[in-house]
């Protein structure tokens, strides 16, 4: 298994050790994630590729604190997140993780600004909502309701909402899955910009292989395992992506 050697433990933000998740499906057991060892470093932009059922979403759910591992361990910095209870996991998500969903999941009754404030109100050291929206290029759409925004704009609001609390880790599950290529690229630009300017470690799940070019590293999942990890020697700007 071509695993990246753990070069410097101090820059490791996220680390997993034989992380495993199995589901009981009637009488058979399905192994969704099979003893995955992985590490992400602070400031990295990682694209996770893989077909449906390859385990990439399960991986994201476990490291995002949304699900409990069957065995193995996961650490966020010095904190072991496997084995945490619901309250501690909630705290972990609240303080350290930002999520971007495939279908944006904005609150329809709140404006763009208010959707961001929803999160900054409960965060420890948030940036101003306006600042976050400005970063994703939506300074002039702040008082619009989700129904008044395009899909790409909604997803950028979702990114602003995710980064406004200055999370260490940004987890994006198919962020461009519901968008056409043109608006998808704008969203990817927003993500790389945040990564560059704030140093937020970003994990982007996708089955769109075209996105691989914008990552520092590309992790490919297959059958619940990491099939390959490649480092991008020639990292491209998001604007150059085409699909």
């Amino acid at each position: 298994m071509p695993n990246e050697p753990a070069d410097d433990a101090r820059t490791q933000l996220l680390r997993t050790d034989k992380l495993t998740k199995t589901y009981a499906m009637g009488s058979t057991t399905v192994v969704a994630l099979d003893a995955v060892d992985f590490a992400a470093h602070a400031g990295e932009f990682i694209v996770i590729l893989g077909p449906s059922g390859s385990g990439k979403s399960t991986f994201l759910n476990l490291v995002g604190g949304l699900d409990m591992a069957t065995s193995g361990q996961a650490w966020f910095r010095d904190q072991q997140i496997t084995g945490l209870g619901d309250a501690a996991l909630t705290r972990y998500r609240r303080n350290s993780v930002g999520f971007v969903f495939q279908f944006y999941n904005l609150v329809p009754s709140l404006t763009a600004r208010e959707n961001v404030k929803l999160v900054t109100e409960i965060a420890k050291t948030p940036m101003r909502a306006e600042e976050a929206l400005d970063m994703v290029g939506l300074a002039d759409r702040m008082d619009h309701f989700p129904a008044q925004l395009s899909g790409g704009e909604q997803q950028r609001v979702a990114i602003a909402r995710a980064i406004a609390k200055r999370p260490d880790l940004l987890l994006c599950d198919e962020p461009t899955g519901a968008l056409d290529s043109k608006t998808g690229i704008v969203v990817l630009e927003a993500l790389t910009k945040v990564n560059a300017e704030m140093g937020t470690t970003t994990l982007v799940i996708t089955h769109n292989a075209a996105i691989r070019t914008i990552a520092h590293r590309v992790v490919s999942f297959a059958d619940g395992r990491i099939a390959s990890i490649e480092r991008n020697a020639d990292r491209q700007a998001a604007a150059s992506v085409r699909w």
Binding site: V107, P108, S109, L110, N115, E121, F145, A147, Q148
Partner: peptide, 30 residues
């Protein structure tokens, strides 16, 4: 279905200037 179109009823109608917690804004708008 099209996402439900909300309007800023509170601010528009009552000229509300108090900054409500956003969860309460959600409740009142809903």
């Amino acid at each position: 279905p099209a996402p439900p179109a909300y309007r800023n009823l509170l601010a528009g109608r009552f000229g509300l200037v108090i900054e409500l917690r956003k969860t309460w804004v959600m409740v009142s708008r809903h």
